[in-house]
């Protein structure tokens, strides 16, 4: 049997197991549970979409997207007195700049992307704490952003943003020169360079996209909780990576799609809800994240070896 078939078989088996668990867990198909799952999916999914640009462009992952997300959440609340759309724009620009700088460094210097992201995480935390004095951010009392907390029927605003974000990401990846370059640079950096593709620009832009999507997640989270601090994004890096990998985006870069990230985020969030409903603690959920990432990495490595 070819490795590709093994992977597909394992994936199908896991989905069947998940389906059985859903059907046998009382309350999983209840309205509150579904809303909670989709909500959870949306925030992870937005960060995961950003992460996917990093992964597909060949830079494995970023551990600073959670920090970007939190920063954007804080910026959004602190500028909320300027009006919702202005605050959103400022927060997104902040996210794009913070992450884009990392992309520029990685793209021009060929610095190790994970080390850069760890350094960026520390820097963002340090600078934001210094600027805010470590205080939590709250919205301006007169600020109006109920749109971000609204819903259409059962569908809440973050999910709408996530759905739209998925479509946009897929369109960008498929139908723009930048998107195609992301795939080529990610699949073989040196060949991209030799083909005359501006690799540094592609990687910088991929990181800008990562900052943009992390920023969206931060804004939606801050709007929901009506407060934000640096812990707003805690854990989201790992969960986004899990969603990206479960979706089947190649960890070595050059392959993947926004649809896959969407599917990965849904599966990951559903597994989390199952654990909660069955009474497991958050520690067990974290364990599950770890196990899932390990499994996917082993499967992908097995598939790459032929």
């Amino acid at each position: 049997m070819k490795p590709r078939h093994v992977i597909n078989a394992v994936r199908a088996l896991l989905l069947v197991l998940l389906a059985i668990a859903m059907l046998t867990t009382p309350g999983f198909f209840s309205t509150p549970s579904i809303i909670a799952t989709l909500d959870y999916t949306s925030l992870i999914g937005l960060v995961a979409l950003g992460m996917a640009f990093v992964t597909i462009s060949g830079n494995i992952m970023s551990l600073a997207l959670s920090a970007t997300m939190a920063t954007c959440g804080e910026v959004f609340l602190l500028t909320s007195n300027l009006g919702m759309w202005t605050a959103i724009a400022i927060a997104l620009v902040a996210g794009v700049v913070v992450t884009g700088i990392q992309g520029f460094i990685i793209g021009t210097l060929r610095a190790n992307p994970i080390i850069v992201s760890i350094a960026a995480f520390a820097l963002i935390h340090g600078i934001v704490s210094a600027l805010t004095g470590g205080a939590r951010a709250y919205p301006d009392p007169g600020a109006e952003y109920s749109l971000l907390r609204g819903r259409i029927g059962l569908v809440q605003a973050p999910l709408i943003v996530f759905l739209a974000g998925t479509v946009v990401a897929q369109l960008v990846l498929t139908f723009t020169r930048f998107g195609r370059n992301v795939f080529l640079v990610g699949s073989n950096f040196r060949a991209a360079e030799a083909a005359g593709i501006a690799t540094w620009r592609t990687i910088s832009l991929a990181y800008c996209m990562a900052g943009f999507y992390s920023g969206l997640a931060g804004i939606m989270a801050a709007a929901r909780y009506q407060t934000a601090d640096l812990e707003l994004g805690a854990g989201y890096d790992y969960e986004a990576i899990a969603a990206v990998l479960i979706g089947g985006v190649a960890i070595q870069g050059g392959m993947g799609s926004a649809w896959r990230v969407f599917a990965g985020a849904v599966v990951f969030a559903a597994a989390g809800t199952l654990l909660v409903l069955r009474g497991y603690s958050t520690e067990v959920q974290r364990l599950l994240t770890g196990v899932l990432i390990f499994c996917v990495i082993c499967l992908q490595a097995g598939g790459a070896k032929r």
Partner: peptide, 15 residues
């Protein structure tokens, strides 16, 4: 350095 082996021939031609 020459090709994107994991990508389609089509994309390789127009890279």
């Amino acid at each position: 350095e020459g090709l994107f082996l994991k990508r389609e021939v089509r994309e390789n031609l127009v890279a």
